[in-house]
Amino acid sequence: MSEIEFLNWVRGPGFQIAIIIFVAGVIIRFAEILLLGRKPNLAEAKGSEMRGGLCTIVSRSFPDKNTFQRSAFTEVSGWIFHGGLFITIFLFAPHILMFKDIIGFGWPALPTPVIDAMTVVTIIALLAILVHRINNRALRFISTKEDYFVWLITILPLITGYLAFHRIGMTAPTLLAIHILSVELLMVIFPFTKLMHAFTITLSRWYNGAISGYRGVES
């Protein structure tokens, strides 16, 4: 297989396979969750489920002071790497083209050097997060193989993207193909790992807020 053939494969059949697994997986996982249903609460309500649910979807991103102090690293690194992922994935011009090709519309991009810098920041944040996971007693204890695997699959597109952009180590088509392949790998494992939280976070935060909101507590 020539490198262009490799590139053509990841841009063609490879992408098709990945998007099929991704879309099907996400929809199936959502159906699995939602169709399980939830018994209506028979206790007299003290507050609104909807209001509580919606509030918590937003408010959980901003912890109270004590929680922040106790988990400052997790909070800050989490913000940085999620922000970094968002910027590098959604605000890089070539990526926007990809989304536009699929969903039919695009949006303005950030200047490339900003993306480049954010990539480095995000990679550093993810490396720090790994070190933290290994060093923190509770975290190390609860970490599973999946946690490390997902970490790897998450950082790979950043590293391969950085290498592809700067054309380091291999020829450009191979680097680009590896980058796209690493993203396809991410798409394939996405629905079946904790990566699903990117979608189900709204659900679980809503449930949390609704449960509390019903009792008149803003969670």
Binding site: P13, V23, M98, I102
Partner: peptide, 17 residues
Amino acid sequence: ALSMPTENITRTVIYTA
């Protein structure tokens, strides 16, 4: 563009969904 998939992904997404 190089970053775009070569095939018609919109159709794939709709059928898959």
